[in-house]
């Protein structure tokens, strides 16, 4: 589904990713771990198409297409979803209204009829249950006045509605208390499927107790330094990232 080859990325002239390789297939759940400043968020932002990242060389292929040539919304239509580390507040814009516009833009692109308000609401109410999102959040302004946990829950709710092929979860576990973590992780687990890939970016092993990954990667020094199964995460937890560097 996603193939990243020798990706080099700079931000303001500073090299962040230095020849990163990563292959992700449908149905897989990957965890990307790594120390602060390793380039984890850079990677997810580059995949989603955020401005401000200079790709100096390498390629990203998604479902056979050159992902880097696509605009952010084209990537969204093609099924790329990013659960933001810091979901932004948009005052006055109704949460459901934004989602409906997104879903219908995607449907229009796919040549499908747009969903009317009634059909859309029934989808939304169904999906809200997945992450135990109180229905009152649906009619509130996007993320405005939401607590940290509510924002993250809202991201996973949006993922459920948009039904992406490739979901990037950027530190979705940060700032969550243990109950919220359980609920969010439960939502993600329900969204695992054979035709969907999920990439979790996290600092902590504890998320992986709830969402079991097929692969764990250590991202450091701008490359994938080491890949393993979930036991790698446990070793990391025990020994720290320096241990990975030393073992190489």
């Amino acid at each position: 589904m996603l193939e990243i080859k020798d990706l080099h990325v700079s931000v303001d002239g500073k090299k962040i990713l230095k020849g990163l390789n990563l292959t992700i297939n449908a149905g897989e759940v990957h965890a990307i771990m790594g120390p602060n400043g390793a380039g984890k968020s850079t990677l997810s932002n580059v995949i989603a198409g955020r401005d401000g990242y200079e790709i100096t060389s390498g390629s990203v292929t998604y479902k056979g297409d050159d992902l880097l040539a696509m605009s952010p919304e084209e990537r969204a239509w093609a099924g790329v979803f990013l659960a933001f580390q810091y979901p932004v507040e948009i005052p006055g814009v109704n949460n459901t209204y934004l989602l409906k516009a997104g879903v219908n833009a995607k449907r229009k692109h796919q040549g499908l009829d747009e969903l009317d308000a009634f059909d859309f609401m029934s989808v939304v109410k169904e999906k809200a249950k997945l992450v135990e999102l109180d229905p009152s959040f649906l009619s509130r302004s996007v993320n405005e006045g939401f607590s940290g946990g509510e924002k993250k829950r809202n991201e996973i709710f949006q993922m459920a509605v948009l039904e992406p092929s490739l979901a990037l979860l950027d530190e979705t576990d940060s700032g969550l208390d243990i109950d919220a973590l359980r609920i969010v992780a439960g939502g993600v687990n329900k969204l695992r499927s054979a035709d969907r890939a999920i990439v979790m970016i996290t600092h902590y092993q504890r998320l992986l107790d709830y969402i079991e990954p097929d692969f764990v990667h250590v991202l450091a020094n701008g490359i994938i330094l080491k890949t393993g199964d979930k036991s790698l995460a446990l070793e990391l937890e025990e020994h720290g990232y320096d241990w990975v560097k030393e073992t190489l």
Binding site: E73, A76, F81, P91, V93
Partner: peptide, 26 residues
């Protein structure tokens, strides 16, 4: 960041601006 958020959810940049401005004027 607001524009990118809306685009990531599938809105064109122009629709994103309209939505944010309309929200501002609500």
């Amino acid at each position: 960041d607001q524009l990118f958020y809306c685009q990531q959810r599938g809105l064109s940049e122009e629709d994103a601006v309209n939505m944010i401005v309309n929200g501002f004027c609500k």
